[in-house]
Simulated assay, not measured.
Amino acid sequence: MQLYNTLSAKERAALIEKAGQDRLTLSFYKYHHIKNPQLFRNHMFLSWNEMDVLGRIYIAREGINAQLSVPAGNFKAFKEHLDSISFLENVRLNIAIEQDNKSFLKLKVKVRHKIVADGLDDDTFDVTDKGVHVNAEKFNELLDDPDTILVDMRNHYESEIGHFRNAITPDVDTFRDSLPIIEDDLKAHKEDKKLVMYCTGGIRCEKASAYFRHKGFKEVYQLEGGIIEYTRQVEAKNLDNKFIGKNFVFDERRAERISEDVIAHCHQCGKPCDTHVNCANEGCHLLFIQCEECAEKMNGCCSEACMDIVALPYEEQKALRKGRYKSNNIFKKGRSEVLKFKP
């Protein structure tokens, strides 16, 4: 019984091209108390592998977080499978604004301690005791209310390329870093302000909304479906779009453009740019913003040191990487000291 992916990304890409069929990129999440995450994980892998579903899925005792690529012809069967699972019946599916048949090239279903790492060790905190979900129209109304405080629950490299106007964008590397910072900064407004949060698809601000309710904030709201669903509703209902720039996404596309505004800068030359790339040196793989001119000049690398490595024969590059863990710079997402124009 096959319980793990057996094809390389290159092999899978070739199969996708040969099939010539459109695929849908989508995501969903659900907080739910899962008694046996490993058993549930195996069931999901076996079912989705048969449907040629690809993606990155995390399962924990607190629920499931899934980012997927599904063959368009198998979408109905995929949806029927979700609906056959009681707590996933009619779960909201966030369909990507911009589609790419190669957004995911492997099926990875992993059991984690939590589907969103929060750094919390509090048995009294109930992640299902969430704040009020609001749609795009209500969200816009709340943003026009002077008693609203709007908080971006994403990390600095996400909000750097796009965010809602007048949002607080914490300068953090991880979600777990943001919770205590936001609580401390806004503790004086637990009673008198409306705390409104948003993230990419809803999963982080849903946990955050439950956390801040747990911490005594009286009026807590979250944008249902996150930026992805907001964009869809704005277009469908002809609403005022209050998001500027790009929405960062965690697949091969890296971002979806929401407005024509370019609010970020190339980390190497400083010119306006909002294109994230990974350093071409596989031993580095740093995520940073690079314009086309710098990409050509630096051969897709973040530094001259990485350029020197990329210039070596591939086997020599592999030998240099052998036994070495990738630099923690990859997780700094643009804060590396080799970059001149850091956020």
Rank of each mutant, 00 (worst) to 15 (best):
N166L: 11
C301V: 06
I309Y: 00
G216N: 14
H265D: 09
E229I: 05
G245L: 03
G334E: 09
A60Y: 02
K340D: 12
M51A: 04
F75L: 11
R254V: 13
E224D: 13
L143Y: 07
N281V: 04
D251Q: 08
A77N: 13
D185Q: 10
K297W: 02
G202C: 08
F40H: 04
K333G: 09
A13K: 14
R335G: 07
E160S: 12
F331K: 08
N155P: 06
I289G: 00
D192E: 11
H33T: 08
R23M: 14
D118F: 04
Y325S: 11
K332T: 09
E224M: 12
I227V: 15
Q21A: 15
D100F: 10
K194D: 15
A96D: 07
L46F: 05
K79R: 14
V134D: 09
R165T: 15
V53H: 01
I57N: 01
K333C: 14
S84F: 12
S69D: 01
E80F: 04
D121T: 13
K79G: 04
D152F: 15
A72N: 07
F341H: 09
R321P: 06
N5K: 15
N238S: 13
L287M: 01
F28D: 03
I97G: 02
E50D: 12
E235Q: 12
L120A: 06
F217P: 08
L142S: 05
N278V: 10
K297T: 07
N74W: 02
V277A: 00
R56N: 05
F250K: 08
E296P: 02
L142Q: 10
M307T: 04
Y4G: 10
L142R: 09
D177I: 03
I85T: 01
D185P: 01
G283F: 03
D261H: 10
E292I: 11
E292M: 10
K130C: 13
I181V: 12
R213H: 11
L287G: 07
K30R: 13
Q2R: 13
K76H: 11
M153Y: 05
N238R: 14
K35M: 03
I258D: 01
E11A: 15
Q67L: 06
S47E: 13
E315N: 08
S259I: 05
V53E: 01
V172M: 11
D126L: 15
V134S: 09
A136I: 03
L82F: 03
Q99A: 11
S159E: 00
I59C: 03
E206D: 13
L39M: 07
H156K: 14
I34V: 10
Q290H: 07
G63L: 07
N65C: 05
L3N: 15
N135C: 15
N65F: 01
M153R: 02
L26C: 14
D173R: 09
C273H: 03
I289H: 00
G226F: 02
L82I: 00
H43L: 12
